[in-house]
Design a protein around this nucleic acid. Structure first.
Length: 271
DNA sequence: ATGCCTAACACCGTTAGA
């Protein structure tokens, strides 16, 4: 084991509109000081991203946006190179749900780069509609792409809003969620397929206790009752999992006024 | 509970989210 390694914090946050959440995002970034931030639901065009505020904190900013809906972004202190702005496998899929970039790590083990992706996986509700079909097809494309990426043997983090509760332990009320796209057997089977490829759920690997959530619905006092879902995940390649040092859920942003309905998750790699 | 809450866009309501 080499010593005096740098520790890299990689975080994911579904902000539910980037422009309206700038104060929450910057306050949280100041407190957590993440090296890489993966954002989802920026809900704006790329030219509407509040770049100056984020760059002012010392981050390079890349984004894939749409008007009013979806949208992902990737922020990093070290320079990154964007390699993909859409998930491969369907040229007709125009929804802004994926961005992938590479960051060179000067002192990384075996000279491996860090590869990160910000993922906004389709919600898929209601399950009787083509929205659920789209979700499952998107997951199949993600599995196929992950299989290719893993061949590179890089330090890889596929992070974001997966819109998947991996097990019943990730749900506040399994009866209430029984017909929800986030909890369907077909959804969970595809999420497990990612783990079968060798991807590790960073938070769950270190904190397997049930009922730890990253999302609480705005409605019905879900936050106050701690009735939430664990749907945001950081999935690590074996080379990243070897370096996994810590992981957590930062609840402070969800406590603020006018919060996102999600809160950030993070992991720390001894890279 | 066709409900609850929030954001965007358009427009004084509708759509979408999870």
């Amino acid at each position: 084991m080499e010593n005096a390694r740098r520790k890299l914090t990689i975080a994911s946050f579904n902000v539910n509109s980037l422009r309206i959440r700038v104060p929450h995002l910057l306050a949280w970034m100041k407190a957590r000081a993440p090296d890489v931030v993966l954002l989802q639901e920026i809900k704006c065009l790329e030219e509407e991203v509040p770049r100056l505020e984020i760059q002012g904190m010392g981050y390079q900013v890349s984004a894939v946006g749409m008007k009013a809906r979806h949208g992902v972004a990737l922020l990093s202190k070290l320079p990154h190179r964007v390699e993909l702005t859409a998930l491969p496998g369907d040229a007709n899929d125009g929804e802004a749900r994926y961005i992938e970039a590479v960051i060179d790590l000067p002192d990384a083990p075996h000279g491996r780069p860090l590869r990160v992706a910000s993922i906004y996986l389709p919600n898929g509700n209601p399950i009787s509609t083509d929205k659920f079909t789209y979700k499952l097809a998107w997951m199949d494309r993600l599995i196929a792409h992950a299989r290719e990426l893993l061949k590179r043997e890089e330090i890889l983090v596929l992070g974001g809003d997966y819109n998947v509760c991996p097990t019943d332990e990730d749900v506040f009320d399994t009866v209430a969620m029984a017909d929800d796209a986030l909890c369907q057997p077909a959804t969970r089977q595809r999420f497990r397929a990612l783990t079968h490829l060798g991807l590790v759920d960073a938070f769950h690997a270190l904190h397997p206790e049930p009922h730890q959530y990253t999302f609480w619905d705005y409605q019905a006092g879900r936050w106050q009752r701690d009735e939430g879902l664990r749907i945001d995940h950081l999935m690590l390649s074996p080379q990243a999992a070897d370096l996994l040092d810590d992981a957590g859920i930062d609840k402070e942003p969800r406590k603020q006024d006018k919060p996102s309905d999600h809160t950030p998750i993070w992991c720390r790699l001894a890279a």
